[in-house]
């Protein structure tokens, strides 16, 4: 990991999103105290925490595999942190019951972890980490092992819980949809660095890098070259199209290569043969996707374009169509 700079606000649901090996779990382990940064500083509640051992950090981690203690009952698992902290037994009983109520698991309090379903184990892990009321709850792919339907339900539950408790959640996932749905803000990580951070809408609508545009949702990429740059702004010409695009970005110079991201749902597809405005293209593939239809159209030589368009009217494979877009839908992204 290199030069990762993040700041998470109190009470926020923050996600670290990225492919496996991007450094997101390492970041979480740095915060939990199971790894030490070679350089730089980690602050929790405004105080430097680099040298604080895990047991004295006011953060709790929900492990990817839950890490429930197999020899203890659900109740004793949840009580663990409170027992260590020396809370009075009578108070422990009340707080454990409340925590199990919160995740609707009081019925299985006397069972061992191996007698529970995956979803139940996940909730025990959540209750165990929350019962000591940490300042920050860290979640390492907490829903990764659950099947799709259960995962959707747990996403909503997790979000509701976080809002209700007002705690800071830092959540690691490789599921972009999960990150977009759950987070107040998120950071996309790539090769040990933060590629971009912001709200889900900011990242989706205005991806800064080619990687972010590709990883969060889908994108088409169009290449071009800066033809003029000056105080008034810059213009770029798209390869193979000859069309020029106005650029708001600074720091560009003439002759520089640029890349634009274009969301498939922003591409307009027009059927009806010759005379329709737009760039000519041929439909190569059509896939009905429920909410909309996905097309792959041959566009420029050797280049196809992904399009998501309303289900009707439907174009057929081999049909000549026209594609177009609003200039504002082309997002200038950096190369990696």
């Amino acid at each position: 990991m290199d030069r990762v700079s993040l700041s998470v606000r109190r009470g926020e649901f923050f996600s670290l999103l990225g492919p496996s090996g991007c450094g997101k779990t390492t970041t979480l382990r740095l915060i939990a105290g199971f790894a030490t940064p070679d350089s730089g500083e980690l602050r929790i509640n405004g105080t430097r925490a680099n040298e604080v051992p895990p047991q004295r950090r006011d953060v709790n981690l929900v492990f990817q595999n839950y890490a429930l203690f197999p020899h203890l009952t659900v109740e004793r698992n949840v009580a663990f942190g409170l027992e260590i902290a020396g809370v009075r037994p009578a108070d422990i009983a009340v707080r454990v019951r409340d925590a199990l109520d919160m995740v609707q698991l009081n019925a299985v309090a006397a069972r061992r972890p191996n007698q529970l379903s995956g979803g139940q184990q996940q909730r025990v892990a959540l209750a165990r980490a929350l019962v000591t009321r940490p300042a920050v709850l860290l979640l390492d792919e907490p829903l990764g092992a659950l099947d799709l339907k259960l995962r959707k339900d747990m996403q909503l539950e997790l979000r509701a819980l976080q809002k209700k408790l007002g705690l800071t959640f830092i959540h690691v996932t490789h599921d972009q949809e999960e990150a977009l749905t759950l987070s107040d803000r998120l950071a996309v990580m790539h090769r040990g660095r933060v590629a971009q951070q912001g709200t889900p809408a900011e990242l989706y609508e205005r991806p800064a890098t080619r990687f972010v545009a590709d990883f969060l949702g889908e994108s088409n990429f169009l290449e071009g070259e800066v033809v003029s740059a000056g105080a008034a702004g810059a213009r770029a010409r798209l390869d193979g199209l000859g069309a020029e695009v106005e650029l708001a970005a600074d720091g560009l110079r003439a002759g520089q290569r640029v890349t634009f991201a274009l969301r498939p749902e922003r591409v307009q597809l027009r059927t009806g043969g010759g005379g329709v405005p737009g760039w000519p293209a041929t439909v190569e593939d059509v896939a009905y996707g429920g909410r909309d239809t996905r097309y792959r159209v041959a566009f420029l030589p050797g280049k196809s374009l992904l399009v998501r368009a309303p289900n009707a009217p439907r174009a057929q494979v081999g049909e000549r169509v026209a594609v177009g877009w609003e200039p504002a839908d082309l997002r200038l992204v950096s190369g990696d």
């Binding site: 939990a32 105290g33 047991q55 890490a67 197999p70 942190g81 000591t132």
Partner: peptide, 27 residues
């Protein structure tokens, strides 16, 4: 023994000695 069990104990506030006595040894 899943190494994350000991980490979970530390994470919940146990010292390494407590983690050993309460989690590793019973296991």
């Amino acid at each position: 023994l899943d190494p994350s069990l000991e980490e979970a104990a530390l994470d919940l506030g146990a010292t390494p000695a407590q983690a050993f006595l309460r989690v590793t040894l019973p296991f």
